[in-house]
Write a protein that binds this DNA or RNA. Structure first.
Length: 416
DNA sequence: TCTGGGGTCCTAGGACCC
DNA sequence: TCTGGGGTCCTAGGACCC
C-alpha cells in the first residue's frame, strides 16, 4: 500500500501556526509581487477565492470578508515542510518527498494502515501545528484519489482497499481531478464523452495510449490497481535549475536587465553548488507583458554550452551576459526574465576538456569561500559587481511574515 | 495600476551514423 | 518500374505537477 500525505492548504496553514487568532478565519497567500493567489484556507475557498487569481481583481471580496493576505515566505514554508516530513517518514521503510507539501510513504508493512494514518495525522498536528490528510491505496494514482476524499472527510484519512468502494468513488470523480489529467486532456476527453475517472478507466488501452501517450496509459492502468509509478526515493539530483522573476516595474534599460540577470545567475549557481553539481549549459529568457496587448510584444531565448561543466558563479555569469547580448532588443518593456541551468552532473563526474585552461581548484576554493561568507553573514554580502551595487532586490512583498524558524532576529517572542 | 515560480516527462522530426 | 534497415542524438513543443 502507498500513502499520500498532503498538508492541507499548506502555505496558509504555515502562516496560521504563529497566529492562532486566524484559526477559522479566511487566509490567503500571494505569489511574488503580491500578484496571484497561491494558497487559500478553507474559509477563503468557500467564499469563492480562486487559485491563481490575480488579487487586484478581488479587492471587493477581500474587503467584504476581511481575508487576511500574506506575501509568500518560502523560507518559512520550506522549514515547516521539512519538519512535517521528518515526522511522517521516520517509521516507514521508504518514502518520496514529492513536493513542498506532499509525500508518498511505503505503507506495505503496516498492519492497520487506517489507524496508523490517524496516529500520524495527530502527531503532525500536535508537533508542528500543520493539519494533514492521508490517502491510502494500491498505487500512487489511487492514493491521490484517496487523498482527495480524505481532504473532505471528517477524520482526514481515506483507505481505498476495496474494489466496490474504488469503483464507486471513480464513478463520481471528474476526469480532470485525476493526477495526470490537466485542462487540455480533460477537454479532449470531454469530446469523446468521457467525464469521470471510471469512464476513462473503461477505455481501450490502445486508444488511451494514442490520446495521452504512455504517461496517460500508465495512469489509467494505475486506476486499475496495476502499479506503474514507483516511489522515487532519490530525487536529489535536479535536471534543471531555474531562477526567474516578474518585475513589479517593467524593465527597458539594458543595464538594469544585465544586473538582474547577473543576480539570477548567482542564485542559480548557488543552488547548483548546494546540490554538489555542475551544469553543462545555461539559457536566458526574457519577455514583455502579455497582459498588456497594446504594448509591443517580444520574447527572446538563447542557450549556450560551457566548455566544461561548471558551478562557478563568475563563469556562469559571463556566459549569461553573452546570451543577454544575443537576445536583448531595446525599445521593449520587459516584464519577466530568467536563467536556467541544465545538463546537470554531479561534481565528481564532470568530463574535463583538453581545452579547459581554467584553474578549477582555485575556482572551487573561491566559490566555497563565497558561500561560507554569505552563509554566515547574509545573502549577497559578497557578490559580483555586475549584479549592481546599490540596487535593492525589488520584488513586492508587502505582507511578509517573519521567518520565525529560520532567522534568529525574527524568532517569536513570548511574554509571560 | 495590479496577472508567480519552479519543476518533470514524452514525442515528432531533423540531422546524422554505418 | 524499381530507391533498405537499423540506429543515435538533439530540439521544440506539448502535456503535466505543486
Amino acid at each position: 500500500m502507498i500513502a499520500l500525505v498532503d498538508c492541507n492548504n499548506f502555505y496558509a496553514s504555515c502562516e496560521r501556526i504563529f497566529r492562532p487568532k486566524l484559526e477559522k478565519k479566511p487566509v490567503a497567500v500571494l505569489s511574488n509581487n503580491d500578484g496571484c493567489v497561491i494558497a487559500r484556507s478553507n474559509e477563503s475557498k468557500s467564499i469563492g477565492l480562486k487559485m491563481g487569481e490575480p488579487i487586484f481583481k478581488k479587492r471587493d471580496l477581500v474587503n467584504k470578508y476581511n481575508i487576511r493576505l500574506f506575501s509568500s515566505n518560502f523560507a518559512l514554508y520550506g522549514d515547516i515542510s521539512k519538519r512535517v516530513f521528518d515526522i511522517v517518514a521516520k517509521d516507514v521503510p521508504a518514502y518520496e518527498i514529492y513536493s513542498i507539501d506532499e509525500a508518498f510513504l511505503d505503507f506495505s508493512g503496516i498492519k492497520d494502515p487506517y489507524n496508523y494514518a490517524l496516529h500520524l495525522r495527530d502527531k503532525v498536528k500536535r508537533w508542528t501545528g500543520i493539519p494533514i490528510s492521508i490517502g491510502i491505496s494500491y498505487t500512487k494514482t489511487l492514493s491521490k484519489v484517496a487523498g482527495h476524499i480524505a481532504k473532505k472527510s471528517s477524520d482526514g484519512v481515506c483507505l481505498l482497499n476495496n474494489e466496490g468502494r474504488i469503483d464507486k468513488i471513480l464513478s463520481s470523480l471528474p476526469v480532470d481531478e485525476i493526477w495526470g489529467v490537466g485542462m487540455r486532456y480533460a477537454m479532449k476527453l470531454k469530446k469523446y464523452d468521457i467525464h469521470t475517472a471510471k469512464d476513462l478507466r473503461g477505455c481501450e488501452e490502445s486508444w488511451v495510449r494514442k490520446m495521452m501517450n504512455v504517461v496517460g496509459l500508465r495512469m489509467v492502468r494505475e486506476l486499475k490497481c496495476i502499479p506503474h509509478f514507483n516511489l522515487e526515493e532519490d530525487r536529489s539530483m535536479k535536471k534543471s535549475i531555474c531562477t526567474s522573476r516578474s518585475f513589479s516595474v517593467e524593465i527597458t534599460e539594458y543595464s538594469r536587465m544585465s544586473e538582474y540577470l547577473s543576480m539570477f545567475a548567482s542564485r542559480c549557481s548557488e543552488k547548483l553548488r548546494s546540490e554538489g553539481a555542475c551544469a553543462r549549459s545555461v539559457s536566458v529568457f526574457m519577455y514583455t507583458n502579455r497582459f498588456r496587448p497594446t504594448a509591443r510584444q517580444y520574447s527572446g531565448y538563447f542557450s549556450m554550452d560551457f566548455d566544461t561543466a561548471t558551478s562557478d558563479t563568475i563563469t556562469i555569469t559571463k556566459v549569461v551576459m553573452r546570451c543577454l547580448k544575443k537576445i536583448f532588443r531595446s525599445g521593449y518593456s520587459y516584464k519577466k526574465a530568467g536563467v536556467t541551468l541544465s545538463g546537470i552532473v554531479p561534481k565528481g563526474q564532470v568530463q574535463l576538456s583538453i581545452f579547459d585552461f581554467g584553474d578549477r581548484k582555485r575556482s572551487d576554493k573561491l566559490m566555497k569561500t563565497l558561500d561560507q561568507i554569505n552563509g554566515r553573514m547574509g545573502r549577497d554580502i559578497l557578490k559580483l559587481s555586475s549584479s549592481g551595487i546599490n540596487n535593492k532586490w525589488k520584488i513586492g512583498k508587502e505582507r511578509l511574515s517573519p521567518c520565525y524558524t529560520t532567522r534568529w532576529s525574527e524568532i517569536l517572542e513570548v511574554k509571560v
